Amino acid sequence: MTEEQKRTLVEKALEARKFSYAPYSDFRVGAALLAKNGQVITGCNIENAAYSPTNCAERTAVFKAVSEGIREFEAIAIVGGPGEELPKEIAAPCGVCRQVLMEFCDAKELKVLLGKGDKTWQEYTLEELLPLGFSMTKTGQE
Score class of each variant (00 low, 15 high):
K119V: 14
F63T: 01
L14C: 14
L132P: 00
R59G: 08
E127A: 14
R71N: 14
A35W: 03
I70N: 12
T120W: 09
D26C: 05
Y51N: 11
Y21G: 07
Q5T: 11
V10G: 00
E127K: 15
C97Y: 06
L126I: 08
A32L: 02
P82D: 02
L126A: 09
F73H: 05
D26H: 04
F27L: 14
C44F: 13
A77L: 03
S25R: 12
E3C: 01
T120F: 13
V96W: 06
E123L: 07
K116T: 11
Y24G: 07
E47W: 02
E3N: 14
A107W: 06
P87V: 00
Q122S: 04
I41P: 04
M136L: 10
K108M: 05
Y124I: 08
E47P: 02
L9S: 03
A49G: 10
V29Q: 07
N37Y: 07
G140L: 04
N48Q: 07
C105E: 05
P131C: 11
L110Q: 12
G80T: 06
P87I: 09
K119E: 14
Y51L: 14
A107N: 01
D106R: 03
K138R: 14
L114D: 04
L110F: 10
F63R: 01
T125S: 12
V66I: 15
P93Q: 06
Q141C: 06
A77Y: 05
P23C: 02
E84A: 03
V112K: 10
E74D: 15
E89V: 11
N37C: 10
C44M: 01
N45E: 03
L114I: 02
C105Y: 05
